[in-house]
Structure formats: structure tokens, C-alpha cells
Design a protein around this nucleic acid. Structure first.
Lengths: 154, 154
DNA sequence: AATTATCTCTACTAAGATGATAGAGTATCA
DNA sequence: TGATACTCTATCATCTTAGTAGAGATAATT
């Protein structure tokens, strides 16, 4: 499994949308600016995420993007599979199992790859945007409240 | 982490050399033929494996390749790192730790990638050629002995 | 010593993936 | 009816991947 630059951009954009989940639609331009992502490239990425039903869009003036589900219901596995394909380190998930079943000479090798895939899947299927996005941005009304972040002791 | 076709070829070639560990040098042509790999491409791969000190070569007539260490002392992690680079799913191993330390905004995201890398490394650093190569080929003198393989119950 | 076998090394290449950019089109709001 | 913002298709430069080609170096055999 490999996470491309595009996959990383997708995750960064989604984390940003997760932090602003309470707010309405966020413009592509604002996502690109805040996360420092190439705007036109991000357009294509958000379109893919929309087709995969992770975000929704609002067109026209006052439009933008927002998460389709709460941040704790969008898992990294889903994002990475959408943008970068199967999690297996070789071939794809289905292809790997077929190889294990059919290619006796290399069955053990492919099984190791399957173990690696399963280990990655276990982590990514149990980590949501809520787990990595950081605190939700305070709404305007609450902006003056100081909210301490996780300790940075070393 | 992604295992390329080239990486797979390297593993197949090494598994073959592992099964024939007791025999002398094996010609590239024979490895290519038995494992059904493109011969000229395999040349380049074996050269890389030689530079990485996993195999040794004998030049000239009667030459060929053999493992430099016993099959149980060559781990899949070493092969994959040699041919396909770091095990991390994004950036490389060192780069990932640097990102975790420096990019506070995405620290948790990168930490998840690091977890994935560590899970893959744990498996691949504990699986050797001996674990996946299958039985060592009987030498000529023993060839008539029947040696049962692992059960194929389903 | 010549021949043959085999690894060594450099170069080259076709096809596809990656990381974008450009611009016309469509929907919505004020 | 503008202005705003998403939508969609096309294009492009660069890099990676998966090879192929061929001359060169080295060792065994005759």
C-alpha cells in the first residue's frame, strides 16, 4: 500500500473539513489556502471524495464543501482506498487471495503480503477523521474561550 | 509500502536459491526459466541483490548465483527495502519521523502512517526466506525419496 | 591460446502513473 | 442579471516501471 501526494492532500482537506464540521459549506479556495494545497488539483480530489460519498457540495454563490458524515464515521481506510486503491502491498485485495489459492509455489509469500495488508487495514479501518483532525474550531460566539490543547511535554 | 513487480521477482529468485541452497552456483538462465522470469531483467535484479550482500556471484563458465547467507538469515524486509525502498506508506522512514516532530498540525496523521509502517516492518523483519521458500530440493543422491509436503486440507 | 560460458555494466525505450494546470460549462444567490 | 463557486474535460511535463540490447570482463574447458 502506498499513500500518494494526492491521497495526503485528500486527508488534509478532510481533516480541515472535520475541524469545521459545525460550520456550513467551505469553499475549495479556503481549504486550499488554509492547508496550502494546489487549488485546481484539490478540485479534482474533492470531486472524487464527493463521488465516494464522503463529502457533499453546494454549488453557486455561498457554495462549498462539507463532510457528508460526522468525522468519527469517516475512516482513513475509506479515504485511501478511494484515492489510492487497495491496501495490499502487491496486486489488489481480491487478486491477492486468488493468488494464494491458485499459485501453490508462492502461496506462503503471498500469505505474508496478505498479513501485511490485514495489519494495515486493521489500523486504517479503526482510525477516523475525528481521531486525527484535532479540536473542532470554536464557532464565532465561543472564539474567546481558551481551549487548552494536548500537553506537549517531552 | 508497495512491492513492485521487480520486488516480487527478487523474492521469487531468492526463494528458488533458498530451495537450492545446498547446491553450488545457479545460472541466471536457470533461475529465470524455473521461476518464469524475464532473464535480462533478472540480471539487473540479482546485481542489486549482490550489491546488497544477499547473494554472491561466480563469474565465467560454471558460474552463477547463490545465497550469501543461510535462508533463515535473509528477511523479507531486507529484500523489499533493497528493491523497493522504505516500508513506510508515505515519505520514507526517517522523513516520516521528522514530519511527526515538525508538522504539529498533521502530527496525528503521520503517526498513523508510522503505525502502519511499524506493523509491516514487524511482519517482514520476522519472516525469512526459510519461512516461505518451501522444502530444500533433495540432492541428486536422495532424489528418489518421497518427501511429503505440507497438508493441503481445506 | 582460443573458445565458450557466464556474469557485468551502460544505455536505451515504451507505457503508464503522478502531480499538476487551463478553461469552458453549469448552478445558485443577491 | 451579474457574480460566485462547483463541474467537467483536456492537456501536459516529469517520473517510475518494466523491460531490452549489446559490448565488456572473467573463468573454465579444450
Amino acid at each position: 500500500m502506498r499513500v500518494s501526494q494526492k491521497g495526503l492532500y485528500a486527508l488534509q482537506a478532510l481533516m480541515m473539513l472535520a475541524r469545521r464540521y459545525r460550520e456550513g459549506a467551505i469553499r475549495i479556495r479556503d481549504i486550499a489556502y488554509e492547508e496550502n494545497l494546489p487549488e485546481k488539483f484539490l478540485e479534482l480530489i474533492l470531486l472524487e471524495l464527493k463521488n465516494a460519498r464522503m463529502v457533499e457540495s453546494v454549488r453557486g454563490a455561498k457554495g462549498g464543501y462539507h463532510l457528508k458524515r460526522p468525522p468519527n464515521q469517516i475512516f482513513l481506510s475509506e479515504v485511501i482506498r478511494t484515492i489510492d486503491g487497495p491496501l495490499a502491498p502487491f496486486a489488489d485485495g481480491a487478486g491477492l487471495q486468488e493468488l494464494i489459492d491458485s499459485d501453490k509455489a508462492h502461496r506462503r509469500l503471498y500469505s505474508v503480503f496478505m498479513d501485511v495488508r490485514n495489519a494495515a487495514a486493521h489500523i486504517l479501518e479503526n482510525t477516523s477523521l475525528a481521531d486525527i483532525a484535532g479540536d473542532v474550531y470554536p464557532l464565532e460566539a465561543n472564539k474567546k474561550k481558551h481551549r487548552p490543547r494536548q500537553s506537549t511535554a517531552h
